[in-house]
Computed example of a mutant assay.
Amino acid sequence: MDFDYTATQNEMRAAVRALCAQFGDEYWRKLDEQNAYPEQFVQAMTKAGWLGALIPEEYGGSGLSMLDASLILQEVNHTGANGIACHAQMYTMGSVLRHGSDEQKQKYLPKIANGSLRLQAFGVTEPDAGSNTLRIKTFAKKVNGGYVINGQKMWTSRYFQSDLYLLITRTTPYEEAAKKTDGLTLFLVDIKKAGSSLKATPIRTMINHQTNQVFIDNLEVSDDDRIGEEGKGFYYLLDSLNAERIIATGEILGNGKWFIERASRYASDRVVFDRPIGANQGVQFPIARAHMNLEAAELMRNKAAFLFDQGKPCGTEGNMVKYLASEAAWEAAEAAMTTYGGFGVACEYDIERKWKETRLFRTAPIANNLVLAQIAQHTLGMPRSY
């Protein structure tokens, strides 16, 4: 069994690092101060072809593997950048690729690959339905030639940087569905064409992350905007969620490794009471422990990505690796913050910026407590706890 990355993957990682070197700490720090979107960075990633990594070559993409895609974002965050600004462009197209019609694939995938169309907005969560997607209330009523949609979504990120909106709705009320996983339908909505039927209101957060609540008022879509069969949207959605968790894990691992390197270097250089603070076990042990946990999480990520690329079930592994990586990265963030002491909250050192970003991953794209509940019930056979 070979645990090494291939020469091609290492070359790819080096190329990503070289691109990110053009956007150093000062670039990200300034954007953080202005609460601004990294448009230049996203354009550079698009032009280099990294955001089209998972799109097959026949549609203008690179045709890379899920592991490759996760490694790309791992390197992005390892440099101190923030891949969450554009990571959805890599995986949201998966529903179109795997379940869309030939016409939809030909129409959208080449433009998503070259960046002339952005598909980054993903409408799933609602005010009264967080992780319980089956309880969403946004409803698509069937009419002649299409549907009329009404409802509300929360935490739709990058809406104002998107041309297309991937939207999950109910087409059968929850109470009337034969199976509770039936009756959900997935649509691909042209935001500009939708006009005033879609209204997004930004939600200010503690990190520089553009996210919104979206009000949907008599949105008219055609049958051609539906992805796959009516009522099967939940199963299509799972494909995107598994990809999201594996890709996000790359970002999480990158953050964790960034913290480990910064903290190790600072602990070795910072002298207090005539000795480097890194000579104290109280400083070095938390860093070492976080490093080991990150290494273990990376191996688990590679397994989950392998299963995804083989077309095998990977929901359990995707959830587990997101949990393991986010806990290890948060452990690294806390170790770095403690190591830097007062300087950890000083913006010029960037620890506080990445610390805030890393905390988000314990909650999104799935809450860690929900992962534990799912593993306990579905993997270990214990009674349902929620």
Rank of each mutant, 00 (worst) to 15 (best):
I84A: 11
A177Q: 03
L253S: 03
C347N: 11
T379W: 13
L51Q: 01
E295W: 13
Q210N: 09
L360E: 11
N255Y: 04
E11V: 06
T201Y: 15
A296P: 00
Q43L: 09
V96K: 06
R270Q: 12
E298W: 08
G344K: 00
Y386V: 13
L97K: 06
V271T: 12
L238T: 05
M292F: 09
G100M: 04
E176I: 06
Y349S: 01
T125K: 02
H378M: 08
I227M: 09
V76T: 04
Y174Q: 07
M320E: 07
G100T: 04
F215Y: 10
D223S: 09
R118H: 15
Y27V: 01
G195C: 10
L237C: 07
A48V: 11
P383D: 15
A15W: 14
I112G: 00
V76Q: 03
N82G: 13
N82P: 07
A248I: 07
Q213C: 14
T138G: 02
E298L: 08
H78E: 10
S162F: 08
G49F: 08
S131A: 08
R158Y: 10
Q43R: 06
A279H: 14
L294C: 05
F343Y: 10
A328Y: 01
L54P: 04
A121M: 13
R158K: 12
I84F: 14
A336L: 03
M90G: 05
L253F: 02
Q210C: 06
I252D: 00
E58R: 10
Y349P: 00
Q89C: 07
K193W: 00
Y349D: 02
A7M: 06
G115A: 04
T46G: 06
E57T: 12
T169D: 06
T338M: 06
A279C: 12
G100Y: 01
M12N: 09
Q152A: 14
W258H: 00
S326T: 09
F361N: 07
M154Q: 11
K107I: 02
G80N: 00
I260R: 04
T205I: 10
K322W: 04
S197R: 03
Y159K: 05
A69D: 07
L184G: 02
T211Y: 05
S385M: 14
E244D: 09
E295N: 14
V148Y: 04
S116R: 14
R275H: 13
L109S: 00
N144S: 15
I246Y: 02
E26M: 05
G311N: 13
V221E: 03
Y174T: 04
P202T: 08
E58P: 02
I227A: 00
Q40N: 15
L109Y: 01
S197M: 05
M206A: 11
A21E: 13
K312D: 10
M320S: 13
K192Q: 12
